[in-house]
Amino acid sequence: MFRRLETGARGRVTVNVDGRPVEMEEGANLAAALLEAGFSPFRTTPASGAPREPYCMMGVCFDCLAIVDNVPNRQTCLERVRAGMTVEIQDGAAAVAKAEEEL
């Protein structure tokens, strides 16, 4: 489990994470706040449905992708926590299956 060494001076806001309210520090790195909240996995792969979590934390690996405010493929390691934000797991394999069904 990830934990925070010290509680920051920043205000706390509520973020909706997969349908449940989670308190986070406003302006915190979103991927870090999600790891701290135990959000796992962040996404599943389109190829095999394998679960993924942040790997690089610097914007190169794209394993921290999630659906943020209804927009898919957001790199959560490059986002900051804002009040009222929603975050959902990005289910890659399910999205591919759904698109195939629609075809």
């Binding site: 701290e36 993924r52 790997y55």
Partner: peptide, 24 residues
Amino acid sequence: WTLPGVMTAGAAQILLKSEGVVAD
């Protein structure tokens, strides 16, 4: 190396630098 729970040491350091977030 793709499993959740595995990240780079640099990623761990970024969590520490930017948020003071660590894993025991």
